[in-house]
Design a protein around this nucleic acid. Structure first.
Lengths: 340, 340
DNA sequence: TTGTAAGCGTTATCAA
DNA sequence: TTGATAACGCTTACAA
C-alpha cells in the first residue's frame, strides 16, 4: 500500500518532503485553505502516493477538539439500542466517533465510564440519566462540554434533555383499560429510582385517580426492567385472591416475562386477563393475540439527542437548557377485553 | 470542582508545580514507577486537589497506543448487538474504548468507517466480514494492527476469525426435518454474498443430498437478512402449486417476517406447515407454538473475539492466524410436525 | 501564498 | 531517584 517505510504511517512531514513544500502548506491544504495551484497538485499527489491521513489525536493537541462523543446507556436493551443506532448513524455522518459505555445502574461502572470518557477528551456526552452521579456530570459541564440526557431525568442540572411523555402515555393507556370497564388493574413497575419508572407508575396512579378509584397496593409489583420481574410479578398478581382483570407491563422486557408467565399458567389473553405493555415491538404484532402497546420511537429520541448535541457543538445554539418531550402512541391490538 | 482556572483541565505541569517536583516525577508516578515516599505523598495530594487525569491523546503521541478498539458491524440486529454488548463489557473492563461503526452492507459506509477508525489511531479492529473491502483491511494489517473478523468470512486474509458452525447447524436442523418425514422443505436464504448466508444455504443443500433428495429450485427463495424477505418469501413459497410442508428461515428477522405471513394467511404451525429458524430468541419460546430454532451464542462469540484481540494486544500471542468455530444448538420446540 | 518555529501534554533519554 | 529536555504530529501565529 502506498510507499514509505512499511508498517509506518505517513506524517505531514513525509508529505511535505515528498511534495517539496513546507508542512505549513500541507496543513493548510488539509484544512481547506488556499494554496498555490501547482503546490496543490503536488501535495495532492503526495498524499495519494503516501496514503496520508491526518492524525486526529495530534490535531487534537492543538485544537482541543477530539471529534468524539461519549454515550452512556444503562444497558443493551431494545430501546437503548434504538437510540444508540440512530445516534451512531447521525454522528458517523458528521465525522464524530461514538464511544459507548453502559452502567447497568451501578455507580462504579458509571464512574469508570465517565473517567474513561474524560481521559479520551470527548467533545460531548449523551446519556440516559442516572440520578446519583450528578457531580460527575458537573465536572464535564465545568469543562464546557455539552451534555444531553435522555430517557431518564437527572434533576437539577442545567443541561439539555429529551424525554418521552411517560406519564401521559401510561395515564391514557390505563384510562383505556378503565374505559373498557377494568377496575382491578395490575401494574408491574420498572426501577422506581429511574424517572421513567416513577413517571410511568405515576401515570397509572393518576389514571386511577381520574376515575375516582383508590389505589390498591396489592395490585402493584415494584420490579426492575427485566423479564424476570415481569415473570414473577405476573405470577404473583395472578395468584391473588381477587386477581386483576388486566395487567400493565412498564417496559418490553417486563412484558416478555409476563407473557411467558401467562403462557405457563394457561391464562388466555384477553379472555382471562387483558394486557398492555409500554414499548412496542414487532413481536407484539405477530403474537396471537396482538398485544396492545405504547409505542415510543427510539429513533426519534436518538435524532433529537443528536440534534441538540450537534447544535451546541457547532455553536449554532448556546442558550439556556432545552427540554424536549416526545409523544407516545397507544397501539390498539387484541389483548384488551371489554368487560361488561 | 478541584481548583485551578475554571473550565481548564489540569495538566501534568500543574501537578508538578503544585507538588514541587518535576514533570518527570509525576509521569513516573502515573506510570507506576518508584518515586521517593515524600514525593509520592505530595504528588498524590496535588493530583487529588487538581483532579488531574492524564490525557490519553497526549500520551498516545509518545506511545503510539490509543487504547481504543474499532468495531464494525453490519447493522444493529439482535445478533450484532449481542456481540457488541459483550465486547463492550469486556473491553470497558480492560480500559479500552470501543468505537462502533456499521456498514449496512454498503462499501462506502464501510470505507468511511475504516477511514475514521484510521484517523482515530485504533489499536485493533473487530468486524463482521464484508468481502469486498479486503484491501482496506490489508491497510490496517500493514500498520501492524490486530484484526479479528467474526460471523462473516473475508477469504484469503491472514487474520484471526471467529465463526459459528453455520453449515453443520443447518445441515443437522434440516436433517431433523427430513427425519420427521418432510420432503418439500422451503428455504429462505439470507444474503448469499455473506459467507453465513452461503454456508447456511449449503447446509440445507447438503442435508438434502445426505438424504438423496434432489434440490428443487422453486423451494428456495434467495433473500436478504430482513423481515420483509421472510414475509414475501413465505408468501411466495406457500402459494406454490405444491407448497412445502416445512419452512426454514435463515435468521431471526426472516423468521419474524415468515411468522407474520403465516399469521396473515391463516396457516397453522405446525399442522399446516412446520417452521425452523436460525437464531434463537426469547420470543420463540413465548410464541405459541414454540418455534424450533438453532441457537448460536452472541455472547460466546463476543467473548472469543475479545479474547483473540486482547491476546494479540498484550503480546501474549503473536503467531499464525487462529480460527474458532463455535457450536450451535438445535432447540426443539413445537413448530415441527411429524409427517406420516 | 509561503516557510519557520512555538507549543499542545505527554513519555523517555540522559546526566546528575 | 531526580530534573531537564527532546521528541511525537499536528496547527497557527508571525515574518517574509
Amino acid at each position: 500500500m502506498g510507499s514509505g517505510k512499511t508498517g509506518e504511517r505517513a506524517t505531514i512531514k513525509d508529505v511535505a518532503a515528498d511534495a517539496g513544500v513546507s508542512i505549513g502548506t500541507v496543513s493548510r491544504y488539509m484544512n481547506g485553505l488556499n494554496i498555490r495551484k501547482d503546490n496543490r497538485a503536488a501535495v495532492e499527489a503526495s498524499i495519494r502516493k503516501l496514503g496520508y491521513r491526518t492524525d486526529q489525536f495530534a490535531r487534537y493537541m492543538k485544537t482541543g477538539k477530539s471529534q468524539s462523543i461519549g454515550l452512556i446507556i444503562s444497558g443493551y436493551d431494545e430501546f437503548s439500542i434504538g437510540v444508540l443506532s440512530t445516534l451512531s448513524r447521525k454522528l458517523q455522518e458528521k465525522g464524530y466517533a461514538l464511544i459507548t459505555y453502559h452502567h447497568e445502574g451501578q455507580s462504579d461502572l458509571f464512574d469508570g465510564a465517565i473517567n474513561q470518557l474524560l481521559d479520551r477528551n470527548l467533545d460531548a456526552l449523551a446519556m440516559s440519566g442516572l440520578e446519583c452521579r450528578r457531580n460527575r456530570l458537573q465536572q464535564l459541564l465545568d469543562q464546557g462540554k455539552p451534555v444531553v440526557i435522555f430517557n431518564n431525568e437527572v434533576p437539577g442540572m442545567d443541561i439539555d434533555r429529551v424525554f418521552a411523555k411517560d406519564f401521559e402515555a401510561v395515564r391514557s393507556a390505563v384510562g383505556h383499560l378503565l374505559a373498557m370497564n377494568h377496575r382491578r388493574i395490575g401494574f408491574i413497575t420498572g426501577n422506581l429510582q429511574d424517572s421513567t419508572g416513577m413517571n410511568r407508575y405515576n401515570g397509572y396512579r393518576q389514571a386511577l385517580k381520574d376515575a375516582g378509584i383508590t389505589e390498591n397496593d396489592s395490585l402493584v409489583v415494584k420490579g426492575t426492567w427485566n423479564a424476570k420481574a415481569g415473570y414473577f410479578g405476573a405470577k404473583k398478581l395472578l395468584s391473588l385472591n381477587k386477581p386483576p382483570t388486566a395487567l400493565f407491563a412498564s417496559n418490553y422486557l417486563i412484558a416478555v416475562g409476563m407473557l411467558r408467565a401467562l403462557g405457563e399458567t394457561g391464562h388466555k389473553i384477553p379472555d382471562d386477563v387483558s394486557v398492555i405493555s409500554f414499548d412496542d415491538s414487532p413481536f407484539f404484532s405477530i403474537f396471537r393475540p396482538g398485544i396492545t402497546a405504547i409505542a415510543q420511537s427510539a429513533e426519534e429520541m436518538g435524532l433529537n439527542v443528536a440534534a441538540l448535541l450537534l447544535d451546541r457543538l457547532s455553536g449554532a445554539y448556546s442558550g439556556a437548557a432545552r427540554e424536549l418531550c416526545l409523544d407516545c402512541r397507544l397501539i390498539l391490538r387484541d389483548s384488551v377485553r371489554v368487560l361488561p
